[in-house]
Design a protein around this nucleic acid. Structure first.
Length: 959
RNA sequence: GCGGGAGUCGCCCAGCCUGGUCAAAGGCGUAGGGCUUAGGACCCUAUCUCUUAGGAGUUCGUGGGUUCAAAUCCCACCUCCCGCACCA
């Protein structure tokens, strides 16, 4: 019989809704507030999104069964720019996008037409995603749903951003961005052709004096100013004479264009040919020395200023160009100047002598300045010098400092003394905007920043992280690292959906800044949705009162025109549910959202409302490779639910990886899960609750095993090791059940339904957070009247652990294994099997050894001596072999089993085996099995095997 | 470069935190058998090497070290993956 997943899922979903099982209000119970990052509705969700939400849902359902009052809400993040871009692309009739919408996302034609309006896109996918979440069976309190462009939410964000500004955490300043000169807008990866992230670097412009003019050269190595011996100019280039911020500069045309965007005032005054500059001299700043300008073909107009300072001791290009020029025919004046040039060595690096550039060039066999190997040589020299080099005496106040540290110090010193300026340049140019224009670096004026670089703020956040539970723990150091390097972050943009900056309406609060404390909003959104709270009259006083417990309620009531009782109720709701007990998200949000989440909480809320836990999960792969549109391997979640059922997908995602690992989703694992669930389902349909009396050995054993499973699963879930938990419930326990069934069958027992019913009820209850729908169905089939999702989590009790049953069953198993093993090796067809258990004397020695081993003594010699010293065990001398083997036996067992054995010293192996072995032995091997103790009178022992018997390791004779 | 993660018996992947349960779980694949009209599903057996008595040998990226004992702890190295921002 096939399971109809859709039917079962619909049935139980409507019962949950009908019972309002997941609508959470404050009550007398202990609460758990579990949240997960809300979705950005610009596409339907796929399996990858499903992972984070499923993990959080399992978490929520688990705590609900544990007796907590669990709040698990959801909202939708409309704020941001990608939806805006999408709308533009739809408007312009972008074929690729429209085809994707149609075919990949199955968006109806009518809806696509409406997509020219950004909010329509968000609305459409909002509904799509929400439906998917419901179909997945997420236990969400939908009464609290909101979007980030709701008017009340905007008021909330205004309050947040104002509060931060009052605390001086928002500052204004300049900021470089990748920029499209045509669109007049910042560009990010999404906005460029080929999805290239604009990457830029900061060059230091060293200002050389040339009469009234300044000739700047761009470098990444400001320390080399102490080693400059000449400048390189390309005679082919026509340079621009410009006025820049009241200084007269000579630079390439490309450079002048770049400077225009860097907050500089530029006017063009004229041109000068590179060839005209050759042979002229400039003055080195600070050193006040004259150096000559020489021609070089490696100098490019598009890089830096189109002029290069020459440091032949440390820059391979410079060294080579100098060598090259010595070989050419120069006019005598210039030639004599060139001949006087001596490289100045300023850095001492292990592995190099006076002139690292020369050594490297010679090592690589470079022949001219146009040799492509020079790039590589430069990289090598620079790398070694930067990380391993020290500045020499001739660098004045900087001598002795490591190059890596000196770089910034020297830069600041140069700029302070007006010897240098800054040029920002794309490192991965050319980058084209989607509009076709070539991008540049632009410095934005008057940009608003959240000052995440603030030391006190960071300290507070670090404190919060230290107190917080981060799962999995490994990720904690990543957070600490992020906190370390984080600095000012732009918190406003000029385009996109969102809330306007309250004090500067030209700006919109950036979308990663308006989604950091919204968890608090869930506690009031219920009142927004039922009309209690309306946007009008919402003021700072209201939010201060609710969230920070400030001010007087009557005053707030007057301002908001709300009833004081209602305001009290709202405040209590917040105080009951806050702080966030667990925040779930994908690991891609670690360096941004999750860190900002903590930073903003510690900035705004008092310590008692700081978040308690963060749970981070890895992504989902599709058949081992990354999901991407171009690969066409994105499966929309709702499609997957249709094809396989929600529960199999939930389980397949969870079981394929532990938290931080990437989960691999593939059809085989889903159908494997389906089959597993199906057989469990049929098992449950078969079992009836029955009175259990007269427990036999195997009953006590399987019940003990079930108890350990409960304990293991519970601990695993508490640590969010869901893969492990699920594996224990579905698979690991199965092998125990197999053994149990084998035993029961061999004994021809009929009365086990009650026991199996009890055990499977426990399993189904524990399965229910993972596979909620089918678990309800199984639960019903097992004859339970209430819902499993609202029933209590199975309790673990050590009392029902039967140590005796566990070890006797282990003995039985290992004895059978041994027999099977012998049969396999010898290939005998057995006629008769005889088992000999060890006698009492050996047993005494065994426990004596066991005690010693448990105290850590495993040295054979010492154990032997101690045994001989005791008159009870002195006879061990006769069987020295026995001690060695016994120690090995004991060591090859788990610690728990050893402890169990110590607890139950009185254990009659012979009696147990005689009772239990014959049935199962006959079933397995088809012959009778006799059991003797080696000390029995009239023992049948034709081959003298009996003396090999050891406790828990009986001797065996097969004929 | 910085920061994080990973390398396990054909493949995928547990185990490592807390050393002895480890020749190492589970799944897939493969081989044989059962069930079935057939296929699928399901069940059983086998799956590092050697072995006619429950045993032995060699394995967990490479090389060292600690220990009675190392896949597990420490050190070095090699290889692969991810993040480094104003973007959700």
């Amino acid at each position: 019989m096939e399971i109809n997943w859709t039917e079962i899922e619909n049935k139980w979903r409507s019962k949950w809704i009908q019972n309002k099982d997941f609508e959470t209000n404050p009550n007398e119970k202990q609460k758990k507030f579990i949240t997960v990052a809300y979705p950005y509705p610009n596409s339907p969700q796929h399996i990858g999104h499903g992972r984070t939400y499923t993990l959080a849902d399992v978490h929520a359902r688990f705590y609900r069964m544990k007796g907590f009052n669990v709040l698990f809400p959801m909202a939708f993040h409309y704020t941001g720019t990608p939806i805006l871009g999408m709308a533009k692309r739809v408007e312009s009739g972008d074929v690729e996008l429209i085809e994707n919408l149609k075919n990949l996302y199955s968006v109806p034609e009518e809806s696509i037409k409406s997509f020219v309006e950004p909010v329509k896109i968000a609305d459409y996918f909002h509904e799509e995603i929400k439906t998917g979440m419901i179909e997945m069976g997420y236990s969400i309190d939908w009464r609290r749903e909101f979007t980030t462009i709701d008017p009340v939410y905007s008021k909330f964000i205004e309050w947040q951003i104002n509060t931060l500004r009052e605390k001086n955490l928002i500052v204004q300043g300049n900021h470089p961005v990748g920029w499209c000169p045509k669109d007049q807008n910042p560009v990010s990866q999404h906005d460029t052709q080929g999805d290239v992230e604009p990457d830029f670097t900061e060059y230091i412009l060293i200002k050389f004096k040339y009469g009234d003019y300044i000739i700047p050269t761009a470098t990444l190595r400001p320390e080399t100013i102490f080693g400059v011996v000449n400048l390189w100019v390309n005679p082919e280039i026509v340079y621009k004479k410009i006025t820049m911020d009241n200084e007269k500069w000579i630079v390439s045309a490309e450079c002048a264009y770049k400077l225009e965007f860097l907050d500089k005032k530029i006017t063009y005054d004229g041109e000068i040919k590179g060839s005209e500059l050759i042979g002229e001299t400039v003055t080195v700043p600070h050193r006040e020395e004259s150096i000559v300008m020489l021609p070089a073909s490696f100098v490019e107009s598009g890089t830096g200023t189109g002029m290069v300072m020459s440091v032949p001791a440390h820059a391979p290009f410079d060294y080579q160009a100098l060598e090259d020029i010595k070989k050419t025919n120069l006019e005598s004046d210039l030639a004599s100047q060139v001949s006087k040039i001596v490289p100045i060595s300023i850095i001492e690096t292990e592995g190099y002598g006076e002139n690292p550039a020369k050594e490297a060039v010679e090592k690589f066999g470079v022949t001219s300045q146009n040799d492509s190997k020079l790039e590589e040589v430069t990289k090598e020299v620079y790398g070694k010098e930067f990380y391993g080099g020290k500045l020499k005496q001739n660098t004045e106040q900087f001598s002795g400092i490591k190059v890596a540290y000196a770089k910034d110090t020297i830069k600041e010193w140069l700029i302070e003394n007006k010897h240098a300026d800054i040029l920002l340049e794309l490192t991965n140019a050319p980058i084209k905007c989607r509009c076709g224009a070539e991008c540049v670096v632009k410095v934005l004026n008057n940009q608003w920043f959240l000052n995440y670089g603030d030391k006190d703020w960071k300290e507070l956040a670090t404190k919060c992280f230290d107190q917080m539970n981060i799962l999995p723990q490994e990720i904690k150091s990543e957070f600490q690292y992020v906190i370390g390097w984080l600095h000012e972050r732009a918190c406003a943009r000029q385009h996109g959906l969102g809330t306007k900056l309250p004090w500067d309406k030209d700006w919109i609060v950036e979308s990663l800044s308006d989604s950091v404390i919204y968890m608090a909003y869930y506690t009031i959104s219920k009142f927004v949705n039922n009309g209690t709270i309306i946007a009008d009259n919402l003021s700072k006083e209201f939010f201060d009162h609710i969230f920070l417990d400030k001010g007087d309620v009557s005053n707030v009531a007057e301002i908001t025109k709300m009833c004081a009782d209602v305001i009290d109720e709202i405040k209590k709701e917040f105080q009951y549910f806050y702080p966030v007990d667990s925040r779930h998200s994908g690991r891609d949000l670690v360096p941004n959202h999750l860190t900002f989440f903590v930073l903003n909480h510690v900035a705004i809320f008092p310590e008692k409302n700081w978040p308690k836990e963060i749970v981070v999960n890895g992504s989902v792969l599709m058949n081992g490779s990354k999901m991407s549109k171009s690969m066409g391997n994105i499966i929309p979640l709702r499609k997957a639910i249709q094809d396989y059922g929600a529960d199999p997908i939930r389980l397949a995602i969870i079981i394929s990886a532990e938290l931080l690992q990437d989960a691999d989703f593939n059809i085989e694992s889903v159908s494997g899960i389906q089959n597993k669930l199906e057989s469990l389902f049929h098992e449950c349909s078969r079992l009836k609750p029955e009175k259990i009396d007269n427990l036999e050995a195997e009953d006590r054993w399987i019940l003990s095993k079930a108890q350990s499973m409960v304990s293991q699963v519970t601990t695993a879930i508490e640590k969010m090791r869901l893969r492990e938990a699920l594996h224990d419930i579905l698979f690991a326990f199965e092998s125990d059940l197999n053994w149990y069934n084998k035993r029961v069958k061999a004994k021809n027992r009929e009365n086990t339904s009650g026991i199996l019913h009890q055990i499977n009820s426990t399993r189904v209850a524990m399965l229910s957070p993972f596979a909620p729908h089918i678990a309800e169905e199984m639960w019903e089939k097992l004859g339970h009247s209430e819902m499993v999702s609202t029933s209590p989590w199975p309790e673990f009790s050590t009392q029902s652990l039967d140590a005796n049953a566990i070890q006797s069953e282990e003995l039985l198993k290992s004895t059978i294994d041994d027999v099977a093993n012998i049969l396999k090796v010898t290939k005998i067809t057995p006629q008769k099997i005889t088992i000999y258990t060890a006698d009492l004397f050996k047993s005494k020695i065994y426990y004596s050894i066991l005690e010693k081993v448990m105290t850590g003594q495993t040295n054979m010699g010492i154990v032997m001596k101690e045994l001989i010293a005791n008159h009870e065990t002195v006879d061990v001398k006769k069987i020295p072999d026995f001690v060695q083997k016994t120690i090995k036996d004991i060591l090859s067992e788990p610690t728990e089993i050893r402890e169990t054995k110590l607890q139950t010293k009185e254990f009659d192996e012979k009696q147990f085996l005689a009772n239990e072995l014959s049935d199962i032995g006959k079933k397995e091997f088809g012959v009778e099995i006799d059991v003797f103790s080696e000390s029995d009178d009239g023992i049948y022992d034709p081959k003298g095997k009996a003396r090999h018997a050891r406790p828990f390791k009986p001797a065996i004779l097969i004929e």
